[in-house]
Design a protein around this nucleic acid. Structure first.
Lengths: 222, 222
DNA sequence: GCAAAAGTGTTCAATGTACACCCATGC
DNA sequence: GCATGGGTGTACATTGAACACTTTTGC
């Protein structure tokens, strides 16, 4: 049976919260196409690995981090999106707690890698990666409100103020402290620890941890 | 540059409401693999067409219908999902008003095509198509509640009772007539026509039409 | 004692849910 | 006149939004 074969890549939008900012990992390409432009990390899917494993492999190559929240975003496949030929990309996004990352790893001489603020991205990204980032931010914001993905961006122990900051940074708006805490409490997914965190000349904040190993999704939410 | 090339298909879950039932179009394979098993219609993406166009082409080949609501669902790509080799499939789902379909079209001698109730599917479908259908139903139910996709399953003019029936069939539960109408009214997307529909020995029902050409999605909902 | 962030409740508005009767028609 | 589905409103519960003061600490 004959059919056209097509290159399949995975591209990964890797989010983290750094310096009170929503940041995304970009790589600067040192080879054509789009030489010297910033892009989302990604690579070809190998014959014997699943899409998700390909994404996990790329993610680990870039960040050195395993066991990360990783979710398929969308598949982009316009015929001309890659000048090298017909290439379809399955986009994923990942959420990493900033404390887990020391430094992004640039793959040997292929490119450099660095964090960029989602709110001040380089002008024009390679391929259709502007579009992918747009879409990823939309999805992240959406899921933040209806699921507990936000917890993935924090270390195991965190204060409620830190959690609120994550929400504020991603949604890009101030939230009311009392309403926020009421909402989080109603989810019933946090354990209040008998530990506090001191930081500056004020009352110490109670540390909390996330109850569930697994994330909680309202039924049908993707 | 070397990379593994992979076959890319689109598979389409085509939903309609027929005989007060949520039905999906399946094709019976006449060739290996999965000979004589039912499958979702689909086919290989051609070199020069976008994923969505490939899906539209397949959809039209099966049903003869154009201008259909069509949305990307998810991309499935486990290495062993197709015994012929490494094939990744981008799944779509489509919603068709039953009045637009006369009869599904079986592609010449490749297979036969027929509608099946989502609630009484054949035992074991080809490939991972059970899983794809599961996922499609979840997505459909989810979007039904937060968007106006449901209107795509009705003809241009419809009664509120017909609309309610669509919701009840898909969600598989009874809804309260007054609350349903209040909710629909609050969406503000229907035009009450000066026409009625007589059907049986009772008060005729007012016909309505959908206001928007475009579908309405709350921001961020995918 | 004062600066700084932590922590905590109440009121009001909007939305969702439960529930029952009259209306227009064909026969 | 009766059987059938069409059409309508109100009371209550739940959820979301606005809003201000006391507590604990370091200096």
């Amino acid at each position: 049976m004959y059919y056209d074969k097509i290159g399949v890549t995975v591209d990964i939008v890797i989010f983290t919260i750094k310096n009170d900012d929503l940041q995304v990992l970009l790589v600067k390409r040192k080879m054509a196409p789009f030489k010297d432009q910033w892009a989302i990390p990604g690579g070809f899917v190998r014959k014997e690995e699943s899409l998700k494993n390909a994404a996990r492999r790329e993610l680990e190559e870039e960040t050195g981090v395993k066991d990360v929240y990783l979710e398929q975003l969308y598949t982009f496949g316009k015929p001309k999106r890659d000048p090298r030929g017909r290439i379809v990309t399955v986009a994923y996004y990942a959420l990493i707690s900033s404390n887990r990352i020391i430094k992004p790893i640039a793959k040997t001489d292929v490119y450099e890698a660095d964090w960029h603020s989602m709110y001040h991205l380089p002008k024009k990204l390679a391929f259709d990666h502007d579009h992918i980032l747009d879409y990823a931010l939309q999805r992240l914001r959406y899921k933040l409100e209806y699921t507990t993905v936000g917890f993935q961006l924090l270390p195991k122990k965190f204060t409620l103020t830190e959690l609120q900051k994550v929400y504020e940074i991603i949604l890009n708006k101030k939230l009311d402290k009392r309403n926020f805490r009421k909402k989080i409490a109603s989810l019933n997914v946090l354990i209040a620890l008998n530990e506090t965190k001191m930081e500056g000349a004020h009352r110490p904040a109670r540390l909390h941890s996330f109850k569930e190993k697994k994330f909680i999704f309202p039924k049908g939410v993707i």
